[in-house]
Computed example of a mutant assay.
Amino acid sequence: MPFSGGTGALRRLDFMERLSDPYIIRYPQIVAVADENGRQVELIEFFDCIGGAMWVKHHYAKSPLVRSIRTVGPTNRYLLSTGNVDLALQGSFFPAGIAAVAVDDDEIAVTYRGLGGGGVGASICRATAKGVIREKSDPAGGGRLAGSTIWLPRRERVIIGIDDTDTPEEGATWTLAHNIARAVEDDRSRYLSHTIVQLYPVPYRTKNCVAIACEFATTDPSGLVRRFHEYLEEYTLSDDTGMAVWRGFDPAPLEAFGRRVKQGEVTHDDLAALDDERLSIVMDGRGMIGAVAAIPFATRYEEALALWTGSG
Rank of each mutant, 00 (worst) to 15 (best):
F3W: 14
G6A: 15
A9V: 06
D14S: 12
M16N: 05
R18N: 04
D21M: 07
P22G: 09
Y23Q: 15
A32C: 07
V33Y: 00
E36Y: 00
N37S: 10
V41I: 02
V41Y: 01
E45F: 00
C49M: 02
I50W: 05
H58Q: 13
H59N: 12
V66W: 02
S68W: 00
T75P: 03
T75R: 13
N84M: 09
N84D: 15
D86V: 12
L89N: 08
P95H: 02
G114A: 03
G119R: 01
A129D: 10
G131T: 11
R134T: 12
P139H: 03
W151H: 14
L152W: 08
R154I: 15
I159S: 04
D163N: 06
T167V: 06
A172M: 12
A177Q: 10
A183V: 14
V184A: 10
P201D: 12
V202R: 03
T218E: 10
G223P: 03
R227T: 09
H229W: 11
L232R: 12
E233S: 14
A244R: 00
K262A: 15
E265W: 07
T267N: 04
R278T: 10
S280M: 08
A298P: 00
T299F: 02
A304E: 07
L307I: 06
G310A: 12
